[in-house]
Each structure stands twice: as structure tokens, then as C-alpha cells.
Design a protein around this nucleic acid. Structure first.
Lengths: 195, 195
DNA sequence: GTCGATTCTTACCATACATCAATGCACAGG
DNA sequence: CCTGTGCATTGATGTATGGTAAGAATCGAC
């Protein structure tokens, strides 16, 4: 299993040495979760962000009919949270669940404050995370508006070849906005074309 | 026509008096655009944000088949830009065009810097804008994944009753991810139910 | 007001994707 | 080795939405 610890992640992104940050990172709670365990449930106010050191998380919603819709996958070195819930202090519409046994760094407001005070570059880095998030979401909206299921699948494969291999296809389908059966047929068509 | 000038907008959001900000806002270029005129074209690197003082803008993409897809509408007191292009210095995939004769405040990097230096609250306010943007986009992704055309339309009507009255239905349809014809049918169904 | 140009609606048919139900297939536990 | 469980596939059919083309309504220019 891959592994990225938050210390090396922050050191590399803040352009500082790991030794400089060691004492700060000690304040950060590391949590281990088993497969299927929840880190956030619908209706709770989300108070944390989760940086994935090992494993894989999924963020999703459940609609009136009980169908689930994947908002994002978070493998090693990814960060996941419900920013709407955290920032606006609202009950979350989403769930965050482990798809594999995982290990995450739990980031709360006080830890962010600490980082901001100690490392001047952190604010800019945090800003970059927000912009990346916006870029990603806007691109996804645009694809959902303009591309077919097949196009969206090809895009997913190109962007996240690693995730594709680690999650059940039914969840890839729910990320793409189609059913598992439809994805199966899309794949069949693509296989036919390729040969 | 409504009107919101950037001075009163900033004063109110930074919780300061308009007189305090007058000299700073003078540095900001006010631009008038005629209906159909472009503020950003596909392929250009976006260097500005636009705060709408009067009128209405639309941000959209055009796919391979030449169909357009509305990313956002921006009426008075809204801010629109391509953050991906500005922040990552990339050619934009989008166009920004005036749907009505409009007047906008052109925000560039230097103006943002100036505001940050002069008004300590500005950074937090800017952060709030980013979080609002994320909230809005994520909600839209979730709706596109989980809701029918009818549900999305009802949501749009509830959220933006004012915009609904100012833009051609074909553009509302392209915001919802359906054709103008389908929206017409959806509306017909809703009218039938209501009676 | 008349005319022309958009925009909206409607009817018909086509297509993409969903739904339902059955089967296949791999893997874990007894 | 058998069997249960979860996931992927397949086929038949249903439904939502798209495409096209024509007519109706709206609106601005004169």
C-alpha cells in the first residue's frame, strides 16, 4: 500500500525542511479507520478535514430514492472535507466513508491556525488548495453539462487511472452520473472499438 | 435597472465606511459593455475578475459540436471570472459575454493586492468568496448527478427567480444541462400539475 | 401598426440511459 | 470442495431527453 505522511506532504508544499515542521505536526491527530467506517455522516456539522496518509476515502450523497452519488474519491496524499459544512457551519449533505482500511490526519481549525502562524507560506498554499478545488469542480460541471457518459468515462480513466483500479465500478458509475449497468455497456462498446 | 457600485459593495462587506475606501476604489477601472460584447474569449488567459455594477453577464463554454453550456450568470453585485485561468495562468476554456448593456468594475491582481494591504479584513472576505464559489459548484455537481431536469429547473427557479426573468429560456436550459425544447416541455408539465 | 427576427412551443421520431431481472463470476469461509 | 455473498454482465423493455422541423408568440425597428 502507498503511504504519504502529512509531515512530508506539508514540508514539500511549504518548501521547508521536515525537521522544522516535526514539532507542529505532532499536534495533528492521526486516525485509523477500517473499511466501510464513516468519518462524516449526513446531517452532522463537519468540523475536520482529512488528509489521507494510507488507504482510500469516498465522499458521496444519497438522494430521495436512496441512490448514492459519488462526489469525490480521496486516495493517498489527497485532502477531503465538506468545505460548505465546515466554513458555513451547516449540517452536511454528504457522507465520507473509507473504501479501504485507511489512515488519515485529522485537520481542525486550530491546526490550520497553528500552521498559519508558524509558516508564512501556509496561507498561500491553502489558497492554492481552494483554487484547485474550484478548478476541479468547475471542470466537472462543464463535463456533466457537455459530455456523454462515454466521454466522461474516458476522461476519468485518463485523469485517475490509479483510482479506477481500486474502486468497484459501481462507484465509478456513480461518480460519472450513470448506473453501473450503463457503465458496463460503455466499457463493452469501448472494448469493441479498440479491437 | 438595478445598480450596485463596487464602492458600496466593498464598504458593506469589509464593514468600513464608504469614505474610507473612496480613494482606493478610484484605482479600479470601470468598463461599460454593450449587449453581446465579450469580456473574455475562449483561449485567452483571463487576467481580470469582473464585478457587475449594472447589467448581466454570462459565462459559458462551447463544445465540439458547437453547443454552448452556461457555467454561470452574473447580475448586479455578482462577481465573475475564470479562476482557473487567472490563478494557474492558463488559456480559458470559457467565454464571458454581456447579455444586456452592462457596467463592470475590472479587478486585476494589483487591485487585489492594494485592497489586501489597505484593508486587513479583505483577505477573509476574499476567502469567503472562494468558499461560496465552492459551495455553489459542489451543489451544482450534486444536482447534476442526482436530480431530474424538472427538479433542477425548480431549484433554479427557487434560487434565481430574478435571473429567470432576464435571460432567454434557451440559456436557462443550457445552464440546467438540457435543450431549450426539453425545458419547454418541462414547463408545460409543471403548468399542467399546478392547475 | 407592420414587418422581420428571435424566441418559444409543439409534434413526431430517435437515442441515450435507466430499470428490472436473470445469469455469470470471483473470492472468502465453512 | 461446496456455498454464500458481492459485484459485473447481459437482455428486454421503459422513460427521459435529444433532434428536427414546423408553427406560434413575442419583440424591436421603422
Amino acid at each position: 500500500m502507498n503511504s504519504t505522511d502529512i509531515k512530508s506532504y506539508l514540508a514539500s508544499n511549504l518548501h521547508i525542511d521536515e525537521t522544522e515542521i516535526a514539532s507542529v505536526v505532532e499536534k495533528c491527530i492521526i486516525k485509523k479507520v477500517k473499511k466501510d467506517q464513516f468519518l462524516l455522516r449526513k446531517g452532522e456539522v463537519c468540523k475536520h478535514g482529512f488528509f489521507v496518509e494510507k488507504g482510500l476515502l469516498r465522499q458521496y450523497s444519497i438522494d430521495k430514492k436512496g441512490k448514492d452519488h459519488t462526489i469525490s474519491f480521496a486516495p493517498e496524499s489527497w485532502f477531503v472535507t465538506d468545505r460548505e459544512s465546515v466554513y458555513f457551519n451547516q449540517p452536511s449533505a454528504y457522507l465520507i466513508q473509507a473504501l479501504e482500511d485507511s489512515q488519515v490526519a485529522v485537520i481542525d481549525e486550530s491546526f490550520v491556525q497553528l500552521l498559519s502562524r508558524r509558516f508564512p507560506g501556509f496561507t498561500a498554499f491553502n489558497n492554492r488548495l481552494l483554487h484547485n478545488h474550484i478548478r476541479h469542480l468547475q471542470n466537472r460541471v462543464n463535463l456533466l453539462l457537455s459530455a456523454t457518459a462515454e466521454d466522461r468515462y474516458l476522461h476519468f480513466v485518463a485523469m485517475y487511472p490509479d483510482i479506477l483500479l481500486r474502486v468497484p465500478q459501481t462507484m465509478v458509475a456513480s461518480y460519472l452520473g450513470i448506473t453501473s449497468e450503463s457503465l458496463s455497456r460503455v466499457r463493452k462498446e469501448l472494448a469493441k472499438k479498440a479491437s
